[in-house]
Design a protein around this nucleic acid. Structure first.
Length: 412
DNA sequence: TTTGCCGGGCC
DNA sequence: GGCCCGGCAAA
């Protein structure tokens, strides 16, 4: 059985290969944050590898105990151990890769109905990216280009692209990335993986990542003489698509229904946004973009995330708002009173024409009318200076009355 | 319509 | 901060 070994190698190669791209996917404007996040992910990837090794060792120890109880001859035992190692490793890896953590994507209600996904791969459409979403209109959340608000500053949030339902990655993994949870492994399948260029009006599909990167470099980025050099920018402009429809069905079947609590707006969004450990995790995973699928966990490599950071591949319009309980609170992109505009763009990379300047700002305003709080004090019942002295004796009024302020002489 | 006084402008 | 006034809303 070569599956475990292959997968491990696959993981490692993915990690080493994709980590450099992290900086483009983090929704932060600070280079230090980028480095920090990248380092964290490296550490997580290593921890995960350790964890897997530990799990295998534990199982191995357990197996040895059992084997010793049944008194297996030493010579035969060593041979068996070799096989058992593989089997055990396979079991561990399989259980990890098929664990609920991985297989229960917190999808939005209409995700599974998204036509483009059914076709085996998500292809972002700039024309359909209204960017507007609402708590009351969950269908809009299925929009692939829906950006998500960086609800809390401490949790660097990126715009999210709905993951391919069949690739096994989802917001759960995003949560893993963000909240130090074990990183699930990529499920292997036999599907044909293609790479599609997301550049506007291109859509070129190639069979290898290197090919598509080279295509982007030479055709779109104009780096003719740098065929072997890749700074990762090309990753932004292509996406992985899968041609095997079986996996699509599998992905759809693995979609877990969205709980009402997720579908409904939070009682007070700002609070939820501030708490990363509670509903924030749910909300964010729903709202934000996975930081990167080209991360160590980028076992489910999806470059569509890149499309969010800038044009030309896909525009990132954005407007999101929700109005919980009919209150006046709202969050919206590119529209007051709250504006989130964020385009995760690597500062070190030139953006093709049309790419907006990276700007990240968010403001939350909630200012009910002052009248609602009854700030205007009730009118005094007693006589005031004006009534007592009359207009002709205005000089006898108290200062407040003269200034048309609340009477200080005849206080109620 | 009268009266109390808030909000804001001017100095 | 002192002074003044437009304008709102209750009486």
């Amino acid at each position: 059985m070569t599956f475990p070994a292959f997968q491990q190698e696959d993981v490692k190669s993915d990690i080493s290969q994709k980590l450099p791209d992290q900086q483009f996917l983090l929704f932060t404007t600070k280079e230090e944050d980028l480095k920090t996040a990248e380092t964290k992910k490296l550490n997580r990837a290593h921890e995960y590898e350790k964890e897997n090794t530990r799990s295998v060792c534990l199982l191995e120890q357990k197996r040895k105990v059992v084997s010793s109880n049944i008194d297996v001859p030493p010579a035969r035992k060593s041979l068996e151990e070799l096989d058992m190692d593989k089997v055990t490793a396979a079991m561990v890896l399989t259980s990890l890769s098929t664990s609920p953590l991985v297989r229960s994507p917190p999808v939005r209600p209409n995700e599974s109905l998204n036509g483009s996904w059914k076709e085996g791969g998500f292809v972002p459409s700039s024309t359909s990216s209204s960017g507007y979403w609402s708590w009351n209109a969950p269908s809009d959340q299925s929009n692939p280009s829906t950006p998500s608000p960086p609800l809390s500053a401490d949790s660097f949030k990126a715009f999210r692209t709905p993951s391919q339902p069949d690739d096994g990655i989802d917001e759960g993994e995003t949560s893993n990335l963000l909240f130090d949870e074990p990183i699930p492994r990529k499920r292997k399948n036999s599907m044909k993986v293609m790479f599609k260029c997301l550049w506007k009006n291109c859509g070129k599909v190639l069979s290898t990542a290197a090919g598509i990167q080279k295509h982007i470099r030479t055709i779109h980025l104009g780096r003719v003489g740098e065929s072997d050099y890749s700074d990762g920018e090309e990753d932004f402009y292509y996406t992985e698509i899968r041609l095997n429809t079986d996996s699509v069905a599998d992905g759809l079947s693995s979609l877990s229904p969205v709980s009402p609590s997720l579908a409904s707006p939070p009682s007070f969004p700002t609070q939820d946004a501030i708490r990363p450990e509670t509903s924030c995790a749910k909300t964010e995973t729903k709202l934000m973009t996975p930081l990167s699928r080209s991360a160590p966990t980028n076992l489910y490599l999806v470059h569509t995330d890149h499309a969010y950071q800038a044009t030309p591949p896909v525009n990132i319009p954005g407007s999101a708002k929700f109005t919980p309980n009919g209150s006046s609170f709202s969050i919206s992109w590119q529209s007051p009173p709250v504006t989130f505009t964020g385009i995760p763009v690597s500062p070190t990379h030139n953006r093709p024409a049309g790419s907006g300047e990276q700007k990240q700002s968010h403001t939350v305003l909630s200012s009910p009318p002052r009248v609602a709080f009854g700030l205007r004090k009730p009118r005094g019942e007693g006589k005031k200076c004006r009534k007592v002295y009359g207009m002709e004796n205005r000089d006898m009024w108290c200062t407040a009355c003269r200034w048309k302020k609340a009477c200080q002489r005849f206080i109620d």
